[in-house]
Design a protein around this nucleic acid. Structure first.
Length: 553
RNA sequence: UGGCCUAUAGUAUAAUGGUAGUACGACAGAUUUUGGUUCUGUUUGUCUUGGUUCGAAUCCAGGUAGGCCAACCA
């Protein structure tokens, strides 16, 4: 069991830093901006950051990067905390970049005094115009050479609320001809007379990401500050600010964000789906948000396993959804209780079963568990519901379910033979008539008959009703974020509601979030929309279906 | 006419100058009272051209392809 798993490039850096004594232990942080719900991409980052300190010793902070009051809300803070906890991780400290506003303000004053920052009266258009382009150098702002005293004075007045939004900024004084656009006198502070979710109206100037993130890392003595690839060009500025401020040298390392086929992992786009009502809220089970996946029936274990399997690297990627499905099936197969549910009912009558007779049959709760996870009693009678798709009037090749004259076993009960079937005037089959073999009862079958097919069923008189929600992929194309308007790729058929499925009686006492395998149909969980009269089940994922493949040939 | 990042089966990820491996997928078979699970097998790969070396996926150089950078977003 001691096989060595190879290290990803970040683990290699950490091991090296630990080995040569650069740090006695490591500190990481997970730094979400509270402007949306967490999604699968964040899960990857969470597993990385927390996983690292769990593995190597140290701790991880949860730090909200709340420097832009206009997009941030307490609701998001709460959902983020819930999701991180649910995924199974514990942060050392709950922190906010906004806690550092006073320190950050002092840092800015330090820069001004070192003549490394200045107050600029340019409009954002003017700043953009002087910025140059990636291939042409920018030009100095005419406010660039203000004196230290004047800058200090103006910056204080900015803080005091003497200027309207957008009228002034504090900029770092670096190099307008720098090949890295981010080094061309980046804006450090902007004026926003906006209410902040934590500091209220205390501040009307707010630091930009670049003047908050690295400094927050440094204040917390974060050793390894992990972020995604689009921040690579920011690293130079990150290091420059830390160096000029002469503060703890946190180091930034970048990894590639994960993309998943047939979905999007962009907070902005997910917000759009919510706002434009393509889905029913952030926790819609079709969303790859953590809360959506939780509601859909995914387990934290399966998500962590997925993140572990896809690993961490620096190249562009588009991970196959089938891997995620594999992970959740693997876990659910071990833990989900087996139950029977008929989603598309067809009446079946056993003609030689004593009229009015009811008996109990026993079925194991989980064949993967020890002793089958125990058994439960299921009422059986001569009048049943079966799945419509389990009968074929003209059987296909290799078909081994019900067909005229064919035999199948009713799961955990008897072997039956199809004797006849009834159609209505439209040619729709309305009822199957079968005979059963009394000696074939599960557990003490003395019939000597072997059948290939086993189907699930529900006794009509004992059936409970449920709503079942079947989900399909939200997008029709593998990479909806690739080009064009992603909303044009939305699969308009991603939710199929079955309002009157039949479920076995034991399912009536299911509790929210409980995991089930509806035999032969897939994994399901009880939705929060359930009522006492009508449970609602979400399909997490189907079972692998080799027959579906076979029948397409 | 810039800077930076990246390139290994269909997908994701190893191999850290010395036998190109693993997982998912696909395909075939065995087992099965779930066409599930489990088990076995098969399949497919180092972007390109040079160079260094006894030996290169790995080091070097030039190409090519993809990505990121011109918010008072993060």
């Amino acid at each position: 069991m001691s096989e060595e798993k190879s290290l990803n490039f970040i683990e290699e850096i950490v091991e090296e830093d630990l080995k040569n004594g650069k740090y006695p232990f490591i500190i990481t942080r997970f730094p979400p901006e509270p402007n949306g719900y967490l999604h699968l991409g964040h899960a990857s980052s969470i597993c990385l950051n927390f996983g690292l300190t769990l593995k190597y010793g140290g701790y991880t902070n949860l730090r909200f990067d709340d420097t832009n009051p206009v997009t941030e809300e307490t609701e998001y803070v709460e959902s983020i905390k819930e999701d991180v906890k649910w995924l199974g991780f514990e942060w050392k400290n709950e922190l906010y970049a906004s806690d550092y506003f006073p320190v950050l303000y002092q840092y800015a004053i330090q820069l001004i005094k070192k003549q490394l920052a200045y107050v600029d009266d340019s409009t954002s258009e003017e700043i953009a115009a002087l910025k140059g382009t990636p291939t042409e150098p920018g030009k100095n702002s005419s406010y660039r050479e203000r004196s230290v005293e004047e800058n200090l004075h103006l910056f204080e007045r900015m803080k005091n609320g003497e200027f309207p939004d957008g009228s002034k900024t504090l900029r770092a004084k670096i190099d307008m001809a720098h090949p890295n656009m981010l080094m061309r006198d980046p804006v450090l502070y902007r004026i926003k007379h906006a209410h902040h979710h934590r500091t209220g109206d205390e501040w009307c100037i707010y630091p930009m990401y670049d003047f908050a993130h690295g400094q927050s890392d440094s204040i917390e003595k974060v050793t390894h500050s992990l972020c995604t690839l689009e921040f690579v060009p920011h690293r130079e500025l990150y290091d420059w600010l830390i160096e000029q401020l002469e503060i703890f040298p946190s180091k930034q390392y970048e990894f590639a964000r994960r993309n998943l086929t047939y979905t999007i992992t962009s907070k902005r786009k997910l917000l759009q789906l919510v706002n434009e009502k393509y889905v029913d809220g952030w926790d819609d089970p079709r969303m790859t948000t953590i809360s959506g996946m939780r509601r859909r029936g995914y387990t934290p274990e399966s998500i962590r396993d997925f993140c572990d399997r896809i690993g961490v690297a620096k190249r562009e990627n588009l991970v196959d959804m089938s891997l995620l499905e594999y992970c959740v099936r693997e876990h659910l197969n071990k833990i989900a209780l087996r139950r029977m549910a008929v989603l598309d009912p067809l009446k079946l009558t056993i003609t030689n079963y004593p009229a009015g007779q009811v008996e109990e049959v026993y079925s194991e709760n989980n064949p993967e568990a020890e002793n089958g996870g125990g058994t439960r009693a299921i009422p059986f009678s001569g009048s049943l519901w079966i799945e419509r798709e389990d009968f074929m009037e003209v059987p296909a090749k290799k078909w081994f379910r019900l067909a005229p004259g064919a035999m199948v076993r009713l799961k955990s009960a008897y072997i039956i033979k199809c004797e006849d079937f009834i159609k209505d005037e439209n040619g729709i089959v309305t009822e199957i008539k079968c005979s059963y073999i009394p000696e074939s009862k599960s557990g003490n079958d003395t019939s000597g008959i072997h059948v290939k097919g086993t189907i699930h069923w529900i006794s009509a008189a004992h059936a409970a009703q449920a709503e079942v929600r079947l989900y399909d992929r939200l997008f029709k194309v593998e990479n909806p974020a690739d080009e064009g308007d992603f909303t044009s790729y939305i699969n308009t058929d991603s939710l199929h509601i079955i309002s009157n499925a039949y479920i076995e009686p034991s399912l009536k006492t299911a509790t929210a979030g409980e995991k089930f395998q509806f035999i032969r149909k897939g994994y399901f969980t009880l939705d929060k929309n359930s009522t006492n009269n009508k449970p609602v089940f979400n399909r997490t994922v189907t079972l692998r279906d080799t027959w579906a493949k076979e029948s397409k040939k």
